[in-house]
Design a protein around this nucleic acid. Sequence first.
DNA 1: CGGACCATTGACCATAGTCAACCGCCGTGG
DNA 2: CCACGGCGGTTGACTATGGTCAATGGTCCG
Lengths: 248, 248
Amino acid sequence: MAPSDVLVRKLKYHSPIDSADVAAVRRLRYEIRELAAGEEFIKQGDRPKAAAIVIEGIMARYHTLQSGARQYLALHYPGDWPDVQGLFLEHMDHSVCAMGRALVCSVSHEQLMKIFAERPTIELAVWRETLIDAAIFRESITNNSSRHGTARIAHFFSEQFHRAKFAGLVEANACPLPLTQTQLGEMLGMSLVSINRHLQALRQTKAADHRASKLFVHSWRKLASLGEFDPVYLHQLVRKASVKSSAR
Amino acid sequence: MAPSDVLVRKLKYHSPIDSADVAAVRRLRYEIRELAAGEEFIKQGDRPKAAAIVIEGIMARYHTLQSGARQYLALHYPGDWPDVQGLFLEHMDHSVCAMGRALVCSVSHEQLMKIFAERPTIELAVWRETLIDAAIFRESITNNSSRHGTARIAHFFSEQFHRAKFAGLVEANACPLPLTQTQLGEMLGMSLVSINRHLQALRQTKAADHRASKLFVHSWRKLASLGEFDPVYLHQLVRKASVKSSAR
DNA sequence: CGGACCATTGACCATAGTCAACCGCCGTGG
DNA sequence: CCACGGCGGTTGACTATGGTCAATGGTCCG
């Protein structure tokens, strides 16, 4: 799929984009960059001059603590903008890297400001995009702070499966989730060993399983209920790509 | 201070606002509402038609879990917009309440869209405002997920003291922080008893103390270092209201 | 084959959560 | 005025959860 199609597809999930908007998006000039697994794309402290859109693969934002420890903040799927806030915030307060191999396209801030002036709908759609990001961050605060063990993992898996579904990445009840257990721990604020044990517990419930960089959802209903997952915070307009339809 | 002054003061901390912008802000019509301590302003699930700006006091956003438990997400000071995302996200995914008595002013979405069209600088400033909110959420993920005990509290206190300072609320090394220990727990993902014990530990370091709904900072340097606090994520343009100047 | 990385396991330890009681303060109502 | 009740803060004792340490096995790759 062409980069502009990936982008348009995503924007349409939450915003009303018309054909003139689509045409404007297609006129954007961009650079494509391929990233190896784990490769850093932009670093805490940098001053970006362009914004990236994920085209293929999965990217992640993370904080690096004084100790050198890493805290992952969110994952990003094709169509997502993992560093748009750089448009208006001078310095990056976090880094962005690829989880697994990924393709990103970057569009200069200059061009974005121009397209915003021409097509206000697009500006609002991108703003909305950043607001949904914020909603996802809020949900992570709650998940990591008030859910324990298996429920925390289940909620995280639910969100990723749901978002992967909308990004068209789910096949046969499985979606890519290229994280090691160590990284799951850095995402959820748990130790490697805890992750491992709770994963086993989750496996035993027959709700979901994670292996070989993939998330297998055997019972969406059970997984979502274990994680108390309710997708309203993702603020999608369209509910068509129903998650339920593809997994019991 | 008049509501528009509170707003302008805040926007100027991160965005270049000129006199025409200020004039436009002053022309906004708004409704003032006084809230009692703990009163809910807007509820998870609501569809707001106006956005609120905190004028006096402190407000908070929170999630309500299925169990009825509450997870606070962030505090908001005069000049903050605790529910702007309602402009572009139909449903509230969290609630907003007053911590202690508060004064808010609400401005209809309609008027906001109009001022955005007239004064793009203001639009960008408000967008930036929401991006800074997101940065604060990210920091909370990290704080609640990867810092433990006293450090977690110290970081939270540092952020609140710093933000209160910029809102002009610090007097004699103390700022208002109208939360009970139970609420601190709901903010930081810790139990009441843990909060109590770590607060005592913090008190003993002579860095800071919390009592009578106030936060006393005895040694800013020590508090910030205990909490590994670095204010870059608050993305202020102006660094004039230095925090260090008023506390050793 | 050796090394690196990832998943898994057991044993032990540390931290935080739960339960329950008590204290002091404050506001209400007798 | 004082008794009472509620709330917020504090404490001790106990429990549970998760973290740390260390070792093992599998797999992939050079």
